[in-house]
Nucleic acid binder design. Structure first.
Length: 653
DNA sequence: CCACACTCATTTTTT
DNA sequence: ATGAGTGTGG
């Protein structure tokens, strides 16, 4: 265990001077290539750097690139790391297997789909699709019309998803966390069963299914598990604190044959429990893999010591953690400031003023970020920024792929690939005049009776009234030849057809039209419609502007960032503003009576504050009334309240 | 019976 | 900016 990989040459023959370029802890992490390894990487401690060098090291030592598996939180992260590794060493690093758990699962399941009963493949449905399907079923089964309250579709999918990701029965989730829906328990459970059944019938997989089926295959088919484990001889998992139970089991089985498994993470930065992430995975890792070597990276290369003094205090209050204290060589810096303002708007104005002053001092806008707990927290600020013509990009919150008009266009494309996709047919049909839910159901039944797909639909004839309503759609689908047309030709055809509908439905259609043009430019890069749709479900672009596609002029790149804290994970800025640092907003009132949720809010504040390199500001209005909780919020966030003057300065605006 | 226009409420975080 | 619920009119 812990023995170093020795291959022809040994260390003096490595072309990269690892020892010189890394600090001692990083160097040990990079050169410990066999056996289980847990790296606790504090914020800004060079985690990405360590992973990158480790990939290069393995490849340089002669390991086949595609037998290295690098699992990351976003595909962007893995591409970035492999790109950097390739720049360090050579292009072999680009052949390393990598991606998110979900994209990896998709890749494997594609190969073994027949084993789990998906002989004809499957398509991936995103969260909104799941919601629509649940809603369709709910209406069919007549739930929600009774005298007790029934959860809305968002809540339902949350319940189902938590049940799966935490391996808890739906009944128990309701009993523990959704007490108000206990009268509807029976209905909810049968809805859950029906949802599961319906997904199989339609060959749909939601995000959770990807992981569940992968785990099932690994568990039940020893030969496949061994084959995969032998193929992926070196496994690395980034952001391990945000994995859930299923993911940790997948990792365990994949590493089963060799235990060459390195996980990197920071239990203090676990912020995804709402989707089943469990920071205990990282705490328990050494128990699951005996003889785990543990390395802590504690030197911070990002922030000044004045910022770390504050963040260390914040995280000290966390109950259960690998204790670590970050330190920086950068001793001097400005003490973080908490600004108390009269109300929400004066908070926005204060932020704008600070940003303008920073600009005068020569700080570029793209070095500044405003972070917040929930995406609607920035609405007022967005208006003020607009007034002062300060350009910004917003990350997180409402997503490009979830906008109604994008989903509309995608639905038309989906029925070309999967002719019986009920979710998409519904969506398309409801766009037409004279067609509501009932008629849509009728048409759907008719076209599936006729064999489904384009042909089924084209041969379907309903009553006169229905037939005339369907004429434009039939014309579109008649003109489409999926085998001959390119992906963007198909997209163009659909968008041309959809444009009049868009104009009739939305006052702001020019803006939405631009989004559709953007969608087309993405489609141009694909030569398989199926692949395009899969990627849109698995790795949707999360801002409406894709940086790599815009010419890199200085002015276009120099924008302020507005971001949810979740979306800011792993990033850093010269100056960071954390707005709404108000007790009740952050932490949110929803977490007041739940210790575990409160702990997570604390970690979230830690993540936010550790994004800052030089300047860190908090702000909050002195008092606001919260209607839903029926209380006045008038205390700064408990995570930064009552701190000594030399750690946090308070400023009354 | 069914579509549609209108109202009101409601928003944590996301692969 | 959407979703659910309600009343009207076809």
């Amino acid at each position: 265990m812990g023995e170093q990989l020795r291959l022809p040459g040994d260390s003096e023959h490595f072309s990269i001077p690892y020892e010189k370029l890394l600090n001692p802890a990083q160097f040990t992490a990079v050169t410990t290539t066999s056996g289980p390894l847990l790296v606790i990487a504090g914020a800004g401690s060079g985690k990405t750097r360590t992973l990158t060098y480790r990939v290069a090291r393995l490849v340089e030592a002669g390991v086949e690139p595609d037998s290295i598996l690098l699992l990351t939180f976003t595909r962007k992260a893995s591409q970035e790391m492999l790109k950097r590794a390739a720049a360090l060493l050579d292009s072999r690093c680009n052949k390393v297997s990598g991606g998110t758990f979900h994209s990896f699962a998709n890749h494997i399941l594609h190969r073994f789909a027949h084993i789990i009963g998906f002989e004809n493949g499957f398509s991936i449905i995103d969260r909104t699709d799941s919601e629509s399907l649940i809603n369709i079923i709910r209406k069919e089964m007549g739930f929600g019309n009774k005298n007790y309250s029934f959860p809305r579709k968002k809540t339902l999918i949350n319940i189902f998803s938590q049940a799966i990701n935490k391996a808890i029965a739906v009944e128990d989730i309701i009993y523990d966390d959704y007490f108000q829906f206990r009268p509807a328990m029976e209905d909810i459970c049968s809805l859950a069963r029906e949802y599961k059944k319906r997904k199989v019938e339609h060959r749909f997989m939601d995000y959770d299914d990807l992981l569940v089926y992968l785990l099932a295959i690994l568990k039940e088919h020893v030969s496949i598990r061994e084959e995969l484990s032998n193929k992926y001889q070196y496994i690395m998992v980034d952001e391990y604190q945000d994995t859930n139970l299923i993911q940790s089991e997948i990792v365990y089985l994949l590493a089963g044959e060799h235990h060459n498994i390195m996980v990197v993470g920071d239990d203090s930065q676990s912020i995804y429990s709402f989707r089943g992430a469990n920071y205990k995975n990282i705490i328990n890792f050494p128990d699951i893999f005996p003889n785990t070597k543990i390395i802590k990276l504690e030197e911070n290369y990002r922030s000044t010591q004045t910022i770390l003094n504050l963040t260390n205090i914040i995280i000290e209050r966390a109950a259960d953690k690998y204790s670590k204290t970050l330190f920086s060589q950068n001793r001097h810096g400005q003490i973080p400031i908490l600004a108390l303002t009269d109300n929400e708007n004066s908070q926005s104005l204060w932020i704008v003023k600070q940003i303008q002053q920073l600009q005068k001092k020569g700080v570029k806008l793209n070095k500044i970020a405003v972070l917040f707990r929930a995406s609607f927290h920035s609405f007022d600020l967005e208006i003020e920024l607009g007034r002062k013509a300060l350009p910004f990009v917003k990350v997180g919150g409402f997503k490009f792929m979830e906008a109604a008009h994008i989903k509309d266009v995608l639905s038309h494309l989906k029925i070309i690939v999967a002719g019986l996709d009920k979710i998409s047919w519904y969506r398309i049909l409801l766009l037409l005049n004279k067609i509501g839910p009932k008629t849509a159901e009728k048409i759907y039944l008719g076209l599936s009776y006729a064999g489904g797909g384009l042909e089924g639909f084209l041969t379907y004839c309903g009553s006169h009234k229905i037939a005339s309503a369907l004429i434009p759609l039939k014309e579109l689908l008649q003109s489409i030849a999926p085998d001959i047309m390119t992906v963007d030709q198909l997209g163009t055809a659909v968008i041309n057809y959809y444009t009049p509908i868009l104009q009739a439905r939305y006052d702001n259609y020019p803006k939405r039209m631009k989004d559709l043009e953007h969608l087309l430019t993405i489609m141009e890069r694909y030569d398989s419609l199926d692949q395009f749709l899969t990627d849109m479900a698995l790795e949707p672009p999360n801002t409406s502007m894709n940086k790599s596609m815009v010419a890199d002029t200085a002015s276009q790149n120099d924008k302020l960032t507005l971001s949810t804290i979740h979306s800011a994970k792993g990033l850093e800025w010269h100056t960071v503003f954390i707005i709404w640092a108000l007790d009740g907003r952050f932490p949110s009132v929803h977490s007041f009576y739940n210790d575990e949720t409160m702990e997570e809010e604390l970690r979230l504040m830690y993540v936010a504050a550790t994004r800052a390199c030089s300047n860190l500001y908090f702000s909050c209005p002195r008092q606001v009334y919260d209607r839903s909780a029926d209380m006045f919020l008038n205390q700064p966030s408990r995570f930064i309240d009552q701190l000594p003057e030399d750690v946090l300065k308070i400023s009354y605006i």
